[in-house]
């Protein structure tokens, strides 16, 4: 477990915050889709740490900076939101299996609903750094309203075509982020396409139904309440099909949070 120091923890939306934490250089480089377990140093009011996916990571000579984008949803995130510069946090990570980035697909579609924008931005940045110009990239962001579309500035600066949908139509097109998808998947070659998605379970379930007839591969990063983050407590179970089609329990924290969309048993969600 690491002790990090807060560089900034800025409010960027109605309940949305952007945090940067300074950590020692021993902290390993994360891949997009991985997460950390975080809590105020010593707990400060909650017992368990909260899982937050990584938004950005920068390695410097004598320290690293880990950035997180999160929304206040309960007591744990409320306490995190109150931390100010120089406050200390306890961090475990990087944890889990992130997105698998295969070099072949030439067409990549990134889909983020709500706070799903955090790992999706990290992924877009990562792709830009590793595979610049060697693929076609489309990014779709969705949220309830304009005020809840966060982190747009950073993602706008990246390559790739940005599309936005809001439930109330206050920004971009009116509707769900999954409604944007058919425009991009129509006529595309499933062998040369990969979709990466993160968002609420309802959105991912819709996506699963939408993609099933198309055969386009998709990796999703999912969320579940968790206590340990390392596969011990079995609190974050998800039912998936194994290679032989048998239903088995996997841990979101250790076997995920990224899964192939077709492996998840959506009827259990």
């Amino acid at each position: 477990m690491w002790t990090g120091t807060i560089n900034f923890n800025n409010r960027i939306g109605p309940q949305h915050l952007h945090m940067a934490v300074r950590l020692p250089t021993e902290f390993m480089d994360p891949v997009p889709g991985q997460f950390v377990m975080i809590r105020p140093a010593g707990g400060g009011g909650t017992l368990l740490s909260r899982p937050l996916s990584i938004y950005q990571f920068v390695r410097n000579q004598d320290h690293v900076i880990l950035e997180l984008l999160y929304r206040v949803v309960g007591h744990g995130t409320e306490l995190l939101s109150q931390l100010t510069r120089a406050a200390e946090v306890n961090i475990l990570g990087p944890l889990g299996r992130g997105f698998r980035i295969d070099k072949t697909p030439s067409h990549r579609i990134l889909l983020a609903g709500g706070m799903g924008v955090a790992p999706i931005t990290f992924l877009a940045d990562y792709l830009e750094g590793r595979l610049a110009g060697k693929y076609e990239l489309k990014i779709c962001l969705g949220a309830k309203s304009c005020a809840e579309i966060v982190g747009m500035e950073r993602i706008k600066g990246m390559q790739g075509l940005l599309n936005i949908a809001t439930d109330d139509g206050s920004l971009g097109s009116c509707g769900l982020v999954t409604d944007l998808l058919p425009n991009f998947t129509q006529g595309c070659d499933p062998g040369k396409t990969m979709i990466f998605a993160c968002g609420p379970m309802a959105m991912l379930k819709t996506l699963a139904e939408q993609l099933a007839p198309t055969g386009i591969p998709c990796q999703v990063s999912i969320e579940e309440r968790m206590a340990c983050g390392v596969g011990a407590c079995l609190g974050c179970a998800v039912t998936v099909h194994d290679r032989r089609g048998k239903r088995v329990q996997k841990s979101v924290c250790k076997d995920g949070p990224v899964f192939n969309i077709e492996d998840i048993c959506w009827d259990q969600i």
């Binding site: 909650t46 017992l47 368990l48 007591h75 744990g76 579940e224 309440r225 968790m226 206590a227 407590c233 079995l234 609190g235 974050c236 179970a237 998800v238 039912t239 239903r247 088995v248 329990q249 259990q268």
Partner: peptide, 23 residues
């Protein structure tokens, strides 16, 4: 054993509830 359906855990004041179901 597959255990119980999710959600299986919840934090409570100074504690946590779990219903893993012996997975």
């Amino acid at each position: 054993r597959h255990g119980n359906p999710s959600p299986r855990i919840m934090e409570t004041p100074a504690g946590m509830l779990n219903a893993i179901g012996l997975q």
